[in-house]
Amino acid sequence: MTSTAGMKRPKDQVRAAYYDQLGVAFGKKVRARIHWIVREAKGEDILDVGCSGGLVPILLGREGKRVTGIDVSPEAIAEATSALKEEAASVQSVVMFSETNIMSFSANRQFDTVLMTEVLEHIGEPERVIQQAYTLVKPGGRLVVTVPFGVNDYADHKRTYYLKRLIEQLTPYGTIEKIERFDKWLGVTLVVQEHVQPGRMLSAEEVDWLEESFEFVERMHLAEVVRLKQVNKRLEQKTQHVAEIELRIVEQSNEQVKLEQQVSEINQQLEQLAQQYTLVLKRYEEALVSNMEVLEANEAWKSKYRSLANSKLGKVIVRYWKFRRKLSRRLARRR
């Protein structure tokens, strides 16, 4: 499923996609391609070039086929080996993985089917790799190839494939038996033959197929453009809404600052009033104490007066002043 180039590659996600871990819709597309590859792997002895995480060899091993998976990536082989350990003993006995480049791979036999899925787009000189794969296929056996269909500009992709170039590269080694398109992938099955005339023109049926595929992919891209525009519009609306919320937050923050300033001023005024009130209370307390002393003094004089008035001398004096008042009133009436 991945390149045989020697550069370090990102982790392959085919297994995750196959089991819907990258979304149900994408998983359905990936399974359609993987299952086509499995169906096209005829015979009992299969070689998977660029096996990546080992998904296809394990699926074929579950059907009892003897499968060798090779890949130049040690991480890919480690992942494939780990996945194989989780399989039944019957699967482990017929599947093996090897960290090997196809150009240096040697076997003491030829294979019924050689798979090269998502390999050629990573190769600078794919003709050499196809020639090497051809030598590993039994006469009458199959070479099954898949590549991304059309523009697919990943960092480690070295070429774009439509139909004509792939047919030109494969037909010197046999007869094209089947051409399929799976969403954005192209699949070709070649029956290996000797003494095939190089070069081949596209048939009218293949041209029709290609034009229909172009229309399908173009409409798919146009639909994606429309979807992205809708997403962008929703994002703009959300951005505007967020901006309005942020503006309200700023306004509320400014209002809060003003309120905090007012509260601070009121607290200062209350503190001043409290200080003034404390001072008034202190003065009132002092005055109250002073008045209490005066009242206590008056009470002492009243007591002394009552004691004097009740004495014999006091009674005489009181009668005397009463007499004087009566006499003064009589004289005043006579006048």
Rank of each mutant, 00 (worst) to 15 (best):
L59M: 14
D71F: 09
E75C: 12
T68L: 10
S82D: 06
R66K: 14
T68K: 04
E63Y: 02
V72W: 01
P74A: 15
K65S: 10
E79Q: 11
E86D: 03
G61L: 12
A83G: 02
E75M: 14
V72Q: 05
L59D: 08
A80S: 10
L59K: 11
I58P: 00
G61Q: 09
A83C: 08
E75A: 15
P74K: 13
V72L: 13
P74D: 07
E75V: 14
E79I: 14
L84F: 07
I58L: 11
A89H: 01
S90K: 12
G61Y: 07
A76Y: 03
K65D: 07
S73L: 11
K85Q: 11
K65W: 06
I58H: 01
S82N: 02
T68R: 05
V72H: 01
G61P: 00
E63W: 02
R66H: 12
V72T: 13
S82P: 00
E63L: 15
G69M: 09
V67P: 00
A76I: 11
A80P: 00
S90E: 15
G69C: 11
P74N: 11
S90I: 01
S90V: 02
I70A: 10
E75H: 10
E63I: 03
L84H: 05
D71A: 14
A83V: 05
L84G: 05
A78S: 08
A88S: 13
R66V: 13
E86H: 13
A78G: 04
I70Q: 03
T68V: 09
S90F: 08
G69F: 09
S73W: 03
I58S: 03
G61T: 04
L60Y: 08
S82W: 04
P74I: 15
G64M: 14
G69Y: 05
S82G: 04
G61K: 06
E87N: 07
G69H: 07
L84V: 01
D71Y: 04
G64D: 11
T68F: 10
E79H: 09
V67L: 10
T81V: 09
G61C: 13
L59G: 10
L59I: 06
E86Q: 11
A83R: 05
S73V: 13
A89C: 02
R66M: 13
I70F: 12
V72N: 04
K85R: 09
A89K: 08
S73C: 12
A83T: 03
G64W: 02
V67G: 03
V72A: 14
S90W: 07
A80F: 05
A89M: 06
K85W: 12
G61F: 10
A76W: 02
S90G: 06
S73Y: 02
A88Y: 06
R62F: 09
S82A: 15
I77V: 14
A89P: 00
S82V: 09
E87L: 09
T68E: 01
E63V: 02
E79G: 06
V72D: 01
A88I: 00
A89F: 03
E63D: 09
R62I: 06
E79S: 13
R66L: 11
R62W: 07
V67N: 03
